[in-house]
Design a protein around this nucleic acid. Structure first.
Length: 725
DNA sequence: GTACGGTATATAT
DNA sequence: TATACCGTAC
């Protein structure tokens, strides 16, 4: 309920704020507000007992909004009800019950609209709902804490001790608990209203030197708060007037003069009211909170005069002697009302594990308040060291593999991991090395981080990393090939059997057998995989991320069946190679999920862009985006003989260079000469040393194809149909 | 005329 | 939980 009209009253103490203004800070969030608004959207489902996580999704929208501005959110949830509030809570419960009964009655009567409106009124936020949000947050490394009692006190404490610089809430009570910077009415655009405690004197209309926070709190309590109803006829304005009139610190004396000061002769202020007034004041000052750093309950403000103040603290909660239970409550594992165990998440056990294994969901880089080494920084900005430490996915210990939940998570993550097509995987299949045609800037970026290392060293390292990827990758047929004894001896480098037949008939035979053996386990060809992650783009393609996203969404096709029908042709001539794919409907056939191809009819060319899934990533820096923009696409060109010459020279770097290689682009030359140059793999280099005859295996050079004039699709272009001469 | 207090209504998608 | 509106008390 809060203080009626307080936010409006605080107009002069507030200012508009946008999340970009508080970038890098830490905020505590009154999650109840989000849950309530989120639950409103699915009130009917909740009322009908249907399972829904719409409210959770709504909360996560806000969480992601904050993370987008590099703000560390700490979600705070309400705990147990205070004895003083039990009455109002009971009233609310009854009101909800009535609404529910009314809604069902209206529903039976056929008044759906009427029923709906009452269903909205009977929405109750349960701890199970809160726990759903908490679990989602844990996956994202977003801190949550359940207050022993009111979230308001917990948030004010986190604000007071400097853990959080701002509080996000809709409840004006926060001001009374002593929070210094509160953001009200935050919307999904990131705008809100910032109320600053050090400007309260402006709202109260007094000089700074005449103001203190005690006066403000007393004014609010007088006007009526959750713990004490106001005297009849007393609102914020009159309470403010009275507080500014009296300089009496002792409220026993001051309040007795209130009717006289306000000229309200009929008003009676009895001792009972004054006693309740002191209790309300003590509740705001000394309510119990949970200290996650010392892992114990504590008071929001310690008692300065224990003997006198303690007797007013009857509404400020009771301490839980059992430290473990207090921790479990704060973590959200227990239902605060029944103490029923609903989860067994523990920061010491689960934190590093989740950090190391959960790569399905983007995790916040912020350090958790539940980590032993947590040190709140005064500015709220996270130090680089902290980030560095957090990024170390391998440095985890204390993993309790016996825990049921962890095991479930392991299984799930392993499943996801196996199913996830990695860019690296694709690269591992096509480990050809670019030579002349790599965009110079891309090349520079690729080695920029290790500028002191020579290329050979870097290559060695990447090769080692690549092997790790290959070794565990069950979905990469090539990885299998490279891991089996048979293939080690085969040393085949070319996936395309037709092409291989031409290049090396003997090897092709061997390869065919191998392919047959792995086909059943891995039905998708590498080309399928490539196309699933590749985006075929026009040479006019946009650097607009949203556009790319929309394009990706709009095109969704499964290529696996059609791709097999693509005839692969090749020929070898003068050390150059072109791969040509024939299809009755080539354009469509090559359009896969997330792929896009734009044709330039006039020039009879179209172009294809490889590996651009990262384009849609919001994290792509401007440099990369510019690279995308500048990336020269590969296109074919019709010559006088209705043939095309295509060339491509590209490097698809080893798997481990995922991030770097994803920034690589292939640049077409003026006359569209495309070719494939195979990377000299470690084994190839070795075999070259030992066996000079392995030359044909180690170097897959480009071939030139001479083609007929029918329109067909090349691997890198949409062309007049080419045939081999 | 000002401020209080009760009632009605919006909140999401 | 908030605001808007309107009747009422002083």
């Amino acid at each position: 309920m809060g203080i009626t009209g307080l936010i409006k009253f605080l107009g002069k103490s507030s200012s508009d704020v946008h999340l970009k203004d508080i970038r890098g800070s830490t905020v505590v969030v009154d999650t109840y507000c989000w849950l309530h608004k989120g639950a409103f959207g699915c009130a009917e489902k909740l009322a009908m007992g249907e399972d829904t996580d719409q409210y959770m999704q709504y909360c996560m929208k806000y969480v992601e909004l904050l993370l987008r501005y590099d703000i560390k959110p700490i979600l705070v949830f309400d705990g147990r009800h205070l004895p003083a509030k039990e009455l109002t809570e009971r009233r609310r419960r009854e009101s909800r019950k009535q609404s529910r009964e009314l809604a069902s009655a209206l529903l039976r009567a056929g008044d759906k609209e009427g029923a709906r409106s009452h269903m909205r009124r009977c929405v109750d936020i349960t701890h199970e709902m809160a726990l759903r949000v908490i679990r989602e947050c844990r996956q994202r490394n977003v801190d949550c804490i359940v207050a022993p009692y009111e979230a308001d006190a917990q948030m004010a404490w986190l604000n007071k001790v400097g853990v959080a610089q701002y509080v996000i809430t809709e409840d004006s009570d926060l001001t009374l608990f002593g929070a210094s910077k509160i953001i009200f009415k935050l919307d999904l655009n990131g705008t809100g209203s910032l109320v600053e405690a050090d400007k309260f004197y402006l709202a109260m209309g007094c000089k700074r030197e005449n103001y203190n926070f005690e006066k403000f709190r007393r004014m609010c309590i007088l006007s009526g708060c959750d713990y004490l109803d106001s005297l009849p006829g007393i609102g914020l304005m009159k309470a403010c007037k009275f507080i500014l009139m009296t300089e009496q610190e002792d409220m026993w004396k001051a309040l007795r003069k209130l009717p006289a000061y306000l000229k309200m002769k009929n008003l009676q202020v009895d001792d009972e009211y004054i006693e309740q007034f002191h209790k309300a004041e003590a509740t705001f000052k000394h309510m119990y909170i949970y200290n996650p750093f010392e892992r114990r309950m504590a008071r929001l403000n310690e008692l300065t005069e224990p003997s006198t103040e303690e007797r007013y603290c009857s509404n400020a909660g009771v301490i839980i002697e059992d430290q473990e239970r207090a921790l479990q409550l704060a973590l959200g594992n227990l239902n605060p009302f029944t103490f029923e165990q609903l989860d067994n998440w523990h920061p010491d056990r689960n934190y590093r594990y989740a950090q190391a294994t959960n790569n399905k969901i983007k995790r916040a880089k912020h350090k958790s308040i539940w980590q032993e080494s947590y040190q709140p920084t005064s500015s709220g900005h996270i130090s680089k060291d902290v980030l560095k430490d957090d990024k170390c996915a391998l440095a985890f210990r204390k993993v309790d593999f016996s825990t049921k939940f962890i095991n479930e998570e392991i299984t799930e993550n392993a499943r996801v991991e196996r199913a996830k097509p990695e860019e690296a995987e694709i690269f591992s299949m096509y480990q050809y090395k670019a030579t002349a045609l790599i965009e110079p800037s891309a090349k520079r970026r690729r080695y920029s981080s290790e500028s002191n290392n020579d290329d050979a060293d870097e290559y060695k390292k990447s090769e080692a990393r690549q092997n790790v990827v290959l070794a565990h990758n069950n979905h990469n047929p090539f990885a299998k090939v490279q891991c089996t004894e048979v293939v080690k001896s085969a040393k085949t480098v070319c996936e395309n059997s037709s092409l291989l037949k031409i290049l090396s008939p003997k090897k092709a035979h061997c390869e065919t057998n191998i392919r047959k053996s792995i086909h059943s386990k891995s039905p998708k060809s590498p080309l399928d995989r490539l196309q699933e992650t590749a985006i075929v783009k026009s040479r006019f393609f946009s650097n607009n991320v949203h556009e790319v996203n929309s394009i990706k969404k709009s095109v969704s096709r499964d290529l696996s069946a059609e791709i097999n029908s693509i005839e692969k042709q090749s020929c070898q001539k003068e050390g150059k190679l072109a791969l040509l794919y024939d299809s009755p409907s080539p354009k469509q056939n090559l359009l896969g999920k997330g792929d896009e191809m734009l044709e330039d009819d006039a020039a009879s060319t179209c172009s294809l862009k490889l590996n651009t899934s990262f384009i849609a990533d919001d994290n792509v820096d401007n440099e990369s985006r510019n690279s995308i923009d500048n990336a020269i696409t590969i296109s074919g060109e019709e010559d006088n003989n209705n043939s095309i010459y295509e060339n491509i020279s590209q490097t698809i770097t080893p798997t481990s260079q995922k991030s770097k290689s994803s920034k690589m682009f292939f640049k077409s030359q003026e006359k569209q000469r495309l070719g494939l140059t195979r990377t000299k793999s470690k084994s190839a280099l070795k075999s070259q040393k030992t066996n000079g005859k392995s030359k044909s295996n180690s170097t897959l050079t480009t071939t030139t194809a001479m083609l007929h004039s029918q329109t067909r699709l090349t691997m890198f272009g949409f062309q007049k149909r080419p045939t081999l001469k």
